[in-house]
Simulated assay, not measured.
Amino acid sequence: MGSLDRVDLELLSALASDHRATVVALADRLGLSRNTVQARMARLERSGVFQSFERAISPAALGYPIEAMVSAIVRQADVARITAEISEIPEVIQAHGMSGQVDLLVRVVARDTQHLFDVDARILAIDGVERTETSLVMGEVIGFRVRPLLESARREQ
């Protein structure tokens, strides 16, 4: 999508404030018609503005209290296949391709330290994974957020 206009930014800000808001509630809050809000939401969705609508569930609530980041160095020619194989590991909850010294940064969860050791071993056993380094997550200090970006964009309008 090109640039977002003032109404798009206000709509996104309202959604960031209350992600459960109904179209009717958003329309009331923004002083727009329900149809306008629905049309804009559909356009924003088609344009790829919205990421996953998957509900965020705590891995700890599912019995996985340990979280770690696994930095992986991989054979470049095999990145796509390696990524596909890593995605088959249920304890992998997210992965990013990186530039620099590390090729993949893989976010994993585990039941305990032995389980983490086993998850890391499964990643390392994938053909083409040359080396891994695992760091325990001690706590989230800044969660995923976009509200500061939205506020900045609204000020620039």
Rank of each mutant, 00 (worst) to 15 (best):
G2N: 10
D5V: 07
D5R: 02
R6T: 15
V7C: 10
D8H: 04
D8V: 06
L11Q: 07
A14V: 07
A16S: 15
A16F: 08
S17T: 07
R20D: 15
A21Y: 03
V24P: 01
D28C: 00
L32R: 15
S33I: 07
S33W: 02
R34F: 11
N35M: 08
Q38N: 11
A39K: 14
R40F: 07
M41I: 04
R43S: 14
R43W: 04
L44W: 02
E45R: 13
R46V: 08
V49C: 05
S52A: 06
S52V: 03
S52T: 12
E54P: 00
R55A: 13
R55G: 10
I57M: 14
P59R: 04
P59L: 03
A60R: 11
Y64Q: 02
M69T: 00
A72Y: 02
R75V: 08
Q76G: 04
D78N: 07
D78G: 00
D78L: 12
A80F: 10
A80Q: 14
A80W: 09
R81G: 10
A84G: 15
I86F: 06
I86D: 02
E88H: 12
P90F: 09
I93N: 04
Q94E: 13
Q94D: 12
Q94V: 00
Q94F: 01
H96E: 02
G97F: 04
M98L: 08
M98V: 00
L105R: 05
R107P: 01
V109N: 01
A110L: 01
R111W: 05
D112P: 03
Q114W: 01
H115A: 09
F117M: 15
D118V: 14
D118E: 15
D118K: 14
D120T: 13
R122P: 05
I123Q: 05
L124Y: 13
I126N: 06
I126K: 04
R131L: 14
R131C: 11
T132Y: 14
T132N: 13
T132R: 11
E133K: 12
T134G: 08
L136W: 11
M138E: 05
E140Y: 08
E140C: 03
I142W: 13
V146K: 04
P148C: 03
L150Q: 03
R154H: 02
E156G: 07
